[in-house]
Write a protein that binds this DNA or RNA. Structure first.
Lengths: 119, 119
DNA sequence: CTATTAGATTGATATTCTTCTATTCATGTC
DNA sequence: GACATGAATAGAAGAATATCAATCTAATAG
C-alpha cells in the first residue's frame, strides 16, 4: 500500500463540495462472518448441476434417491456424488441411508438464510 | 457409462414395491439455460467480498464511488476492481464514470432473478 | 506540458474446482 | 461364502479463481 516515496498524501485531488466521495462513508451491513456464511451458500448454488439438484429436491418435497438423480445429468456417478457432497458440506442438503440407497433432501433453513438476505 | 461386459441390465437389484426408486421419476423444473443463468448469479455472490460489496451497494440506494469501497476491504485496489468486474460480468451491478471516479450500483433485476427462484 | 490521481488491465503464482477412471465400502441376493 | 449393486472415496489432469505488484489509461491540477 505504501510507495517508496512515502508522501504525506494530505492534499490529494480536490474534490468538488458535495461530491459522493466526500459524503459520509458507507459500511457493510453484514459482518464478515455472516458474509462468509452467505457466500458459502451462494457458492454451493453457483454451479448449474448443483442448482438443478436443489431445484429437483425442492420441488420434490420428500427425500429423493440418488439413483433417480444420476440419470438426470450428463455427468458420471462419482461427479454427481461430489456435487451432493458440496451441497451437504454447505448445509444446504442432508442425506439418509436406507440399505443400498441414499436419499437426499433440502434443509430449507439454509436456502432461507440466503433468500432472506436477498430480499 | 457402459461397462465392457455390456449386460442387458434388466434384473438389477430387486426393489421393494413402493420404494422411492420405483416411483415416478423426478425432473428439474428449471431448464439448463435458466439453471446456468441462476448459477452464474449465485456464483458471483459466492465470495465474501463480493457479497459484502453487494450488501453495501444495496443498502446505499444510490451509486457508490469505488474510492469509498476500496478502504472497506483488506484487499488491494486491483483485486477489488477484479471483484467488481466479476459482478458486472454477471449483470449484478453496473457502473458509470464521472471524470476520475467510477460509481457502481446494483441492478435489482439480477438479484431478483435469484431471489425469485429461491422463494 | 508535467505531475498526480482513480481506476482498470496485465502477468504471474498459488489455490481451488470440475471431472474423470479406478477403487473401496456396505449392503443386498443366491 | 461368492457375487452384484448403489454410493462414496481416492487420485490425477486440466480449467478456473483469487490475489498481488507492476503497468497502463484517462482525467485533472498546477
Amino acid at each position: 500500500m505504501s510507495t517508496a516515496t512515502e508522501l504525506p498524501l494530505s492534499p490529494k485531488t480536490k474534490r468538488p463540495a458535495g461530491h459522493p466521495c466526500c459524503q459520509p462513508v458507507v459500511y457493510p451491513d453484514v459482518d464478515r462472518e455472516q458474509a462468509a456464511r452467505l457466500a458459502e451458500i451462494a457458492k454451493a448454488l453457483g454451479d448449474p448441476i448443483r442448482l438443478q439438484l436443489i431445484d429437483v429436491l425442492r420441488k420434490h418435497a420428500g427425500k429423493v434417491c440418488v439413483c433417480e438423480l444420476v440419470p438426470l445429468f450428463d455427468v458420471s456417478q462419482p461427479t454427481l456424488s461430489h456435487h451432493l457432497k458440496k451441497l451437504r458440506d454447505a448445509g444446504i442438503v442432508d442425506s439418509e441411508r436406507q440399505g443400498l440407497w441414499a436419499f437426499y433432501y433440502v434443509r430449507p433453513e439454509a436456502v432461507g438464510e440466503l433468500a432472506a438476505w436477498l430480499s
